[in-house]
Design a protein around this nucleic acid. Structure first.
Length: 228
DNA sequence: GCGACAG
DNA sequence: ATCTTGTCGC
């Protein structure tokens, strides 16, 4: 038996508590479709808008099999540590437009790597009821704990831990690129999260394919929504 | 007032 | 996140 991972009860919203699991509730062979989620923002006449794109790929072939978009006014401000409250409305709207049910979701943001263990990827999992992974491009410092830069080699990583608890991982997805910050969202462990992320890296980007494609689609969608 | 700050 | 040209480096 491997170490029993920590399970925590964390308050995610006024009186609402949720249990986060850092154990896989699936087998790797069952992961066939992976969704990448991202949002792009813009401002018009003092109003803030956003467009969310979800791109689903076949985990084996890495081919895009479906995508959906949602857009609308964004009324919740960005507050470090509360990103989910700002992004979830559009995310869920786009999720409902999908015809297929992805086996796993990857987010542009943190999961367990968060001072309440409740980053976007983790918070979203309770609405998706699917395993999620958090992939952030920058580090949101926790308890004044800096991260250790991993070696400059593909796959090199260092873990971000406080006390005996590992929050997330600084992962160098390729040589000579900025590392990314990977963490479990829910129902998946950090080792598996890392494995899935690395399996989604190609020579075109330091970000895993699903998130990278969602990022690209999101900008294209915005271009068409704004007459610029 | 100053610094921090996922997206 | 977004606003943006040139420019340093391979």
């Amino acid at each position: 038996m491997k170490n029993k991972m920590i399970k925590e009860y964390t308050r995610i919203q006024n009186g609402l508590f949720a249990k986060v699991s850092l154990e896989n509730n699936f087998k790797m062979e069952e992961i066939l479709r992976i969704a990448g989620v991202d949002i792009a923002y813009w401002e018009e006449k003092g109003f803030h808008y956003g467009t969310c794109c979800i791109v689903v790929i076949n985990f084996r072939t890495k081919i895009v099999i479906e995508q959906s978009t949602s857009n609308g006014e964004i009324t919740v401000p960005y507050i470090p540590g509360f990103l989910a409250f700002r992004e979830l409305p559009l995310v869920m709207e786009a999720v409902e437009k999908l015809t297929m049910d992805p086996d796993l979701y990857m987010f542009d943001g943190n999961g367990y790597l968060h001072y309440r263990h409740m980053g976007l990827a983790t918070h979203a999992s309770f609405y998706l009821n699917k395993p999620t992974i958090g992939v952030a491009k920058n580090y949101l410092k926790i308890e004044n704990t800096p991260f250790v830069m991993p070696e400059n080699e593909t796959g090199a990583f260092t873990d971000i831990r406080i006390g005996q608890e590992i929050y997330g991982r600084v992962l160098r997805t390729a040589k000579d690129v900025k590392p990314i910050f990977v963490s479990s969202g829910n129902w998946i462990d950090l080792a598996t999260s890392t494995e899935v992320v690395m399996a989604c890296i190609n020579e075109n980007s330091r970000l895993p394919i699903p998130v990278r494609l969602a990022d690209i689609e999101t900008r294209l969608a915005r271009r068409n929504l704004i007459s610029k």
